[in-house]
Amino acid sequence: MFLTLQTNDKRPLYLQITDGIKSLIAGGELREGATLPSVRQVAGDLGVNLNTVAVAYRQLQDEGFVTVRHGAGAVIAARNPGRIDQSELLPPLRTVLTQFILAGLTNHEIEAAVRQQLSLLQQKGGAQ
């Protein structure tokens, strides 16, 4: 199972790691109970600072996607879709849609792009 880091991605590295792991959880590739590699291992493999990875893991922990167990490391937590209020998710979606509109895409093209990304997520591992 691999997490991809692109060359042209403008997001900070910790956010790329956080979003990548979330995407794998959403796609069902990382299931509840799966153990993530240690901060030291990830930092060593990527050749980045330990703190960068630690911040990413802490954010995942704060958002409830992973739990840190002493001796076992970071473990994927049970998914609880009811926990997050849908209204909290709408502002970032609106921001992305605004960018699409400002880029000159038609409604049809935006819908196609959203459908494509959604199916990409789902075909990786059967997101529920």
């Binding site: 199972m1 691999f2 997490l3 991809t4 880091l5 692109q6 060359t7 790691i17 990548g20 792991i21 794998l24 990382l30 153990t35 993530l36 590699p37 240690s38 291992q41 990830v42 493999d45 990527l46 490391g73």
Partner: peptide, 12 residues
């Protein structure tokens, strides 16, 4: 050349 990389999530 800079190239995109993948990170394995297998624990060692």
């Amino acid at each position: 050349p800079v190239c995109p990389v993948a990170l394995s999530l297998e624990t060692r």
